[in-house]
Simulated assay, not measured.
Amino acid sequence: MTLDKAWEGRIDEEDGDAGRRLHQAVQDADNAKEPGIMLIGFACDEGVSRNKGRVGAYAGPDKIRKALANLPWQEHMPVYDYGNICCDDHDLAKAQKQLADTISEAMRQKHTPIILGGGHEVAWGSFQGLANHYIQKNCGTPSIGVINFDAHFDLRTPYNESLHGSSGTPFSQIAEFCKSRQWPFHYACLGVSRSSNTQALFNRASALSVLAIEDVEMITEGRTVVRDKLRSFINQVDVIYLTIDLDVLPASAAPGVSAPAAHGVDYPTIEWLVRDILKARCEDGTHKLRIADIAELNPRFDIDDQTARIAARLVWTLMEKAEHLAK
């Protein structure tokens, strides 16, 4: 699918500017003349394949765009589309570096990157892009909080050194990066499933002081208890990288993912917590959230595009508040 085909939709000329939809507002990244939202596609499921998952997430970015196209435009910041970074040659590390370089350049130009995945190997590229931004600014040791809505910790150790990671290793790679630079490692995983992670992974999460809130706890403890734990985590960090793996949702709500969840966390709870994250502010009044990505949409297994629609709703929610994110 070409980008032109992805950004097609209904036009309500009789409603004027108030009837505009996102496909009428999005601009090519080459036309970016002022700070805005920068959509970056990461067309890749090489990491999913290495992690022995169901491939198909490569087609995720364009499906998200297509689901976004008809959503209403709220006249916030300009929206630009960089297009897709593709992993077509099995060289995942190269694709992740290209993503990282694109993110850091977008941030240098004061854009707010929202990355459309793709497998959850996107997280290692997203984090590197944010880290490179702060390294280039030479502003000391950043305290970055990684918030992951996910049924899985994705803290595996790469089982084959020649492959350098998979969709199951990004947060281990982030932890090792932080250790090598003597940066603090702040990681919160919300919606993690006890039945989808081995004890070894729970042990590793504990050793790394990960804030882990299980899927069942998200229901039994109630939203406000979970929110308060998350706020306490956010208060410890300077900036936030938010990553949402769609398999945190129940399979009945999100069938189009690489690893469907038998239990999962309901969508209203996820969006409620995301909106709360969007309220977090730095001391100078800017928003703590700097970048976000959506991972693991697998159109091959979707039903009536319902998972793509959820992904689009999450992106739209982030864009709705994005005028506060740029710095």
Rank of each mutant, 00 (worst) to 15 (best):
T112N: 08
T112W: 01
T112E: 01
P113R: 05
P113I: 01
I114G: 04
I114H: 00
I115F: 02
I115Q: 03
L116S: 03
L116P: 04
L116D: 01
G117Q: 05
G117Y: 04
G117M: 03
G117N: 01
G117W: 03
G118A: 01
G118L: 00
G119M: 01
G119E: 01
G119Y: 00
G119L: 00
G119V: 00
G119C: 06
H120S: 02
H120Y: 02
H120D: 04
H120P: 06
H120M: 04
E121I: 11
E121F: 01
V122D: 03
V122Y: 00
V122I: 14
A123V: 05
A123G: 06
A123L: 04
W124A: 03
W124R: 06
W124L: 03
W124K: 09
G125E: 00
G125C: 00
S126D: 12
S126G: 09
F127N: 04
F127K: 13
F127E: 03
Q128H: 14
Q128F: 07
G129F: 10
L130N: 08
L130G: 10
L130P: 11
A131I: 00
A131M: 09
A131R: 07
N132D: 13
N132Y: 09
N132V: 08
H133Q: 14
H133G: 10
H133R: 14
Y134L: 09
Y134C: 06
I135P: 04
I135H: 08
I135F: 14
I135Q: 14
Q136H: 12
Q136A: 15
K137F: 12
K137E: 11
K137A: 15
C139H: 10
C139Y: 07
C139E: 13
C139A: 12
G140T: 01
T141Y: 11
T141H: 05
T141Q: 04
T141V: 12
P142I: 02
P142Y: 07
P142E: 07
P142S: 05
S143A: 15
S143M: 10
I144K: 09
I144M: 10
I144N: 14
I144S: 12
G145C: 13
G145I: 05
G145H: 01
G145T: 07
G145D: 00
V146H: 15
V146Q: 15
I147R: 08
N148T: 04
N148E: 02
N148F: 00
N148V: 04
F149W: 06
F149Y: 05
F149M: 07
F149V: 03
D150P: 14
D150V: 06
D150T: 08
D150K: 07
A151E: 01
A151Q: 04
A151P: 09
H152M: 09
H152D: 07
H152I: 05
H152G: 06
F153S: 13
F153K: 04
F153E: 00
D154V: 07
D154P: 13
D154K: 13
D154Y: 08
L155F: 12
L155M: 15
L155Y: 14
R156N: 12
R156F: 02
R156C: 02
R156A: 05
R156K: 15
R156G: 03
R156Q: 14
R156V: 02
T157M: 13
T157K: 13
T157Y: 10
P158A: 08
P158Y: 10
Y159Q: 14
Y159E: 13
